[in-house]
Each structure stands twice: as C-alpha cells, then as structure tokens.
Design a protein around this nucleic acid. Structure first.
Lengths: 322, 322
DNA sequence: CGGCAGGATTGGATCGTTCAAATCGCACTG
DNA sequence: CAGTGCGATTTGAACGATCCAATCCTGCCG
C-alpha cells in the first residue's frame, strides 16, 4: 500500500495541497463543490492526517497526559482506573489521545512534565489526587501549560479549572437514605481530619443528622478493613449504639459489615459490588468527560477568564446492606 | 525560554547538526573528545529531542498502544490495570511511552488500529485478553505491525511473540499447599470448559490431585460471588465433601468463603487482600517488563526468527483462608 | 467593457530531525 | 612526496503538514 499524503489527495481531487488542508481544518473557507470533491478523494484513498507533520508545524500534538498510579492500597485504586477509562473515551471523541506516565512523588512528577513537554510537546495534563500544598499545579501554571485537575485545589486559591465530586452530597444522600429507613442513630467511620476529601465526607453526614435532629458517634481511623472492623466494634459499645454506619470508604465499610448489618460505603468499588455493599458512587465517566470539555476550551483559547469549576453529584447505589 | 533545537546545540558545541544527532543516536561513531563536548552542550542547554521531528524522518514514534478495558465485571478488572502500570514503567525505562485506546469489541479494536497507525504511526501494540479465534493478531500480522500479546494465542498457531502466566502452575501450587496442610479431598470451583485460562487452571488442580492419589469434586459455573456461594454449597452436600476449595477466581472464592473456611482464590485482587483470602498472584510487573523486552527486540529488528514465548510462574500469597 | 472587490486557490517557505553522500584530515605506504 | 584508505565530520535534501503572501476567478458596478 502506497503512502497517502496530502499531496496524493490533492492530485486525485485536482486541487492544491493547501485546499485539502483547508477542507480539513477550516471547511467553510472552501467552496462546497470543491469541498465535496476533496472529501471524496480523502475517503477513496483512506487518507489520514499525519500527526507528526502537523505537530511539527503547529506545535500541537493532540496528546494529553495522565498519571497512572500504582495500585497502592488496592481497594480504592479502581476509582482512578475508571476515571482513566472515561477520559480515554472522552478524549477520543474530541480527537485527542491519552498518554500515560508514572511518577513516584510530586517532585518526580514535575520532572516528568518537563520531559514530556519538551520531547512530545504534550498539549495538556489532567491531574488527579490533588492535595494540600500541591506543588504540581503552580509549576504548570507558571509555564502556562494547559491543565485541568480532577479534584479541587485544596487550600490553594483556585486559579485553574477543575472538576470534582461533591463528597458531602454523597454522605448526605447516604445518611438521608438511612434516616428515611427509620434509623435515628447513625454513626460515621472516617479518616483522621486533614484530608479534604475525608473531611467533606464527614461533614455531609454531620449536617444531615443535625438538620434532622438526629445524632450518632464518629470515629476517625487510618483506612483499612481491619481498622474498620475494630472501630465499628468500638462504636457499638457506646451507651446508645448506632443502628447504621456511614463510612468514608468501602474498605472501612467492609470491616464494619462484620459487626453490623446496616452499612454504607463510599466509591462503589469492585469489593462493594462483590459483597453486596450499598455504596456512594462517583460519576467518573461524567467527571472525565467534563475534564475533557474544559481542556478543549482551554486549548481552543475560548476559556472564560474565571476558570471553570464543576462539582458533580454522586449517587447512592443500593444493595443488601442498606 | 528559547526553543532549543539540535542546531542550537551544534552551534554551542561548535560542530554540525549531524554530529549532534550522531552523539545521540550512534555515539561510537563520534570521537570521544567531540562526544563529551556535545554532551556538555546538551546538558547545559537542557536540549531534548523533538519526537515529532524525529518521527517525521524515521517513521517511528516511540509510542506503544494498549487497550484499556472497561471495568466490566469489576472484580477482575484490576489485573489489567496492574499490568498497565507495569507496562508504563517498563516502557519509560526503554524510552517509549504508552498510549491508551478503548474499543467495544474486536472489530472496533481493529478499526482503531487502522486509525492509530496512520495518524500517530504507532510503533507497536500490546494486546491483552487474547482468546480463541482472536481476529486481532492476524490483522496485525498481515500488516506487519509489531506486537506482543499478554496471553498466549489460544488455539491459533503461535506465530507471534507472547508472554503469559502459567495458570496451571498457579492452581498446582495452591493444591500442593493444601495437600501439605493435610487436606485429602480438595474441590475445584471453576468456569465452564472452553476458556483457555479457565481450563488451564482446572488442569493444574486435577494433575496435582492425581499425582498425589487424592481426589475432589469439580464445579463449573459462570464467574460471580453468588455463583461461587451456591456452587460451593452444592459441593459440600456430596457424600464425601471436600475440606478445601481451589477457585478459578477471587469472586468465586469470595462466595465459597461463606460456606467453607479453607479456600484459595486466583489473581490476588484487591478483594482478596481486603478479606484475607489466600490467592494465586500473577507476576504482572514482570510480565509487563518482559512484554517490553520482546517488543524492543522486535522493533530493533533483532528478534529471533522463531517468535519468543515466555511463560511466567505465579506465586501463592498466603493469608487467613489457607 | 474595463476595473475592482472579495473569496477561492496556488506556490514557496518552514518546522526539527535524520539519511545519504560528499568532504575533510590524518596516518600509512610505496 | 604523491597516493591510498579510513574514520570523523559536514553538507544538502527530505519527511508531510501548515502558514503566508501572491495570484486567480467570478460577479458586479460604473
């Protein structure tokens, strides 16, 4: 099979290279009749734009980079994987591709940015797992590299576009569901204060109880199944023990299930599905699609001057445990 | 910051562009003294090869594509994600990057190959989840696209390089472990015959029992936690019930755990870790690294004429259930 | 019927790298 | 000392797309 370049198409359609280029990049500049003729030639020859050549001229690669994390703690890993899948789909729809990289820590990640940017001229980055004092966003912002974060800029002024899930709304929905089912003492099993996500999940539970004039005990432990079981056992020894528990993660919930029937987890991981645990599910495909939307706006230079912020609402997936 | 090209470096080092290129691509062609001078200039200027320009000339993009699968059944999804992480690491080490794509089915995937190859001129593909009558490998082979599969070519003649995990060795290790612990009747919970992986897992168990002169019942069900529980319950009603079960997946094992203390799963997923299930673990980072090794051999044109086949041995991760 | 405005189309230059071939420099030989 | 050989280095062209400026139509107006 011969190599098909823009010149081949031009010959076939009886026009110049530039006209073919125009048909592809700014169709309305070309007269309709010509446009159709060129399109037919493209179709016939199976022509596809050579990205490398285009990139060399325009400086844009139509490639965006995302970090893939090690499945460190295992149970919650799948959240990012599902996000990644959604992002790959959303990117493809808009003519972009996703490239992966790994990094041991923030500093390593920044070094990788430098590499990727100069070698591959990546168009943009999608950052996940934002956290307090994140050095990555300022590095990228300083160099004017387009990026979007999945996760709000904790603690920092939000000077960039982001998409996040409303964690508090998730535990709020869980708590409301339990209240509706007649529970009056509903406990919470969460992480130690300080992590933005964890604090938000706790707050959603607390607010809802307060609003309903109900109450329940609260425990803060390092995430893990055993920790969940131990903490749940302890909450149940209280003078007025809870009849249901809202948990900040499926791991904690899984542990708690050993002590108590009515439990709600968070993140709707594979584990939850496997054991029939009711859990709060993040709309990951949608989050990914919104990230791409924002990115494309940024790349096309039609982003609003105040960076976009998007807060998505999670949903409660009902199973056996609540 | 100015754009640093190969010409900038050449000026600084007082040599020609080509010499700089040689220092990068075939260092031993350049005199040592010159080489060092050029290296210093590269360092000083922070020069990095522009991949787009290089690709345009050489036709090689240093990009490898892998399909990311939807977390369809959830529980086993993480196997591929862990493989992906390993692959990204291994690729980076060899100067390659991993690009993702999604596809609904084999036909869709083949269409994507066509796209990716002509638009991005991908260097190679890594295929996962090979199966009987897989149309993807022949498509790629016909077009002489370099690729490696993670998973052997089931049923087909193996005309391409592949890496796989010795599934039978996994269940063999599990069964031997149970025998060593005094169990004499050991059952197997697996999938219906026909899937290469499932059959191999069953065979490993059967062989080991036969060799030891022991025996045990066998059940074949569609994967799932509930299915595992039901099937396990049934096996236990036999006249001579098993005292331990080897399972083809963690999902099945998780279900079986409800009926029986001693159970071994397969794939060492997050679920297994979470609930303390003993499970057979695939050496995924190693498998990924070997895939990259084979790919680089292929791409450098120094692959042996008989395609390489690598069978890796999984290991048994002992936890509470065995 | 010539001139003109405006959009459509064309040719040439360019992006940064590597390939292929030419040139340089130096030691060695007859 | 001219001639040869060989390794090191340089020069010019090319990859395939887009940008830019120049040219070509076409219809319309005076």
């Amino acid at each position: 099979m011969e190599k098909v370049t823009i010149a081949t198409v031009a010959d076939r359609a009886g026009v110049s290279r530039q006209t073919v280029s125009n048909v592809i990049n700014s169709p309305d500049m070309v007269r309709e009749e010509t446009r159709e003729r060129v399109r037919a030639a493209i179709e016939e020859l199976g022509y596809r734009v050579n990205q490398a050549a285009r990139q060399m001229r325009t400086g844009r690669s139509r490639l965006i980079a995302v970090r893939i994390e090690p499945v460190s703690d295992g149970i919650k890993g799948s959240v990012l994987d599902r996000f990644l899948h959604g992002l790959t789909d959303a990117a493809a729809l808009k003519g972009y591709r996703v490239m992966l990289y790994t990094a041991a820590d923030d500093a390593d990640e920044i070094a990788t940015y430098d590499n990727l940017l100069s070698a591959y001229e990546l168009d943009a980055f999608v950052l996940t797992s934002t956290h307090h004092g994140d050095p990555r966003t300022s590095w990228l912002a300083e160099r004017q590299v387009p990026f979007v974060t999945f996760g709000r800029p904790w603690g920092a002024p939000d000077t960039h576009a982001w998409v996040d899930v409303d964690n508090a709304a998730g535990t709020r929905a869980a708590t409301e569901h339990l209240l509706a089912n007649g529970h009056r003492r509903i406990g919470f099993l969460g992480w130690p204060a300080g992590s933005g996500v964890g604090d938000a999940r706790r707050a959603g539970w607390r607010e809802t109880l307060d609003a309903a004039g109900a109450d329940g005990p609260d425990a803060a432990v390092i995430d893990g199944v055993e920790a969940g079981a131990t903490a749940a056992a302890e909450l149940l020894t209280e003078p007025e023990p809870p009849t249901a528990l809202v948990c900040a993660s499926d791991s904690l919930a899984l542990g708690a299930m050993r002590m108590l029937r009515t439990v709600v987890g968070f993140d709707d991981t594979a584990v939850a599905r496997a054991v029939g645990l009711t859990s709060v599910s993040q709309p990951l495909p949608e989050a990914a699609a919104r990230c791409m939307d924002l990115l494309v706006e940024l790349l096309d230079g039609r982003a609003p001057e105040t960076p976009a912020r998007l807060l998505l609402t999670p949903s409660l997936v009902l199973r056996q445990t609540a």
